[in-house]
Design a protein around this nucleic acid. Sequence first.
DNA 1: GCGACAG
DNA 2: ATCTTGTCGC
Length: 231
Amino acid sequence: MTTVRIPAGWPATEEQARAVQDELRERVVLDEPGPPPGTGHVSGVDVAYDDRRDVVAAAAVVLDATTLEVVAEATAVGRISFPYVPGLLAFREIPTVLAALDALPCPPGLVVCDGYGLAHPRRFGLASHLGVLTGLPTIGVAKNPFTFTHDDPDTPRGSTSALLAGSEEVGRALRTREAVKPVFVSVGHRVSLDNACAHTLALTPSYRLPETTRRADALCRKALREATYPA
DNA sequence: GCGACAG
DNA sequence: ATCTTGTCGC
């Protein structure tokens, strides 16, 4: 487990944070299909908070994309770097997530984030942000539709419907379990939307949420429980 | 101006 | 995100 500090020059206000998003957004790559599902490594990242102690814990878990077995994992703890503001989630999570990714002993491959990528007020959610900062292929898989609209996908697993910002498709509602509430998939960096959905399906053989996020969620909660006050 | 709003 | 017991169902 590594300890991180809030980076120098980290945005202190919402206005500064939005300016950073508007600048970094130019660097998102949307014209690559990304790695094929079921091959190489796939990783999940997630974060847990203790606002009372001002502690945040992040986890990165690398899975074998074929077997979904855990190949490697790492955690990091730090101070909370930004309040939760809808649309600015990345500023709350990214420093600790980057530290956890850096601590991995092997390349993470495609990274699955808890939240959104393109499906974002300024088209630059957590998954896009993490992708631009690391250069890694990233996607976002969220549990809620945020402010976007969508039709209910058909009942069978694998059914999708467009996630819409007005008439613009910013992601997809994807049914990962028959008759269960869908997840909301969007592109982060260097992955197509079709491929992002295919990866999500490959990662959900038995549960609604991807194995990557399930593993990362369990690990960051454990790291938070075991965390001492960060330096 | 008033709500809604990823985690 | 987090606060939280039991309970219904595969």
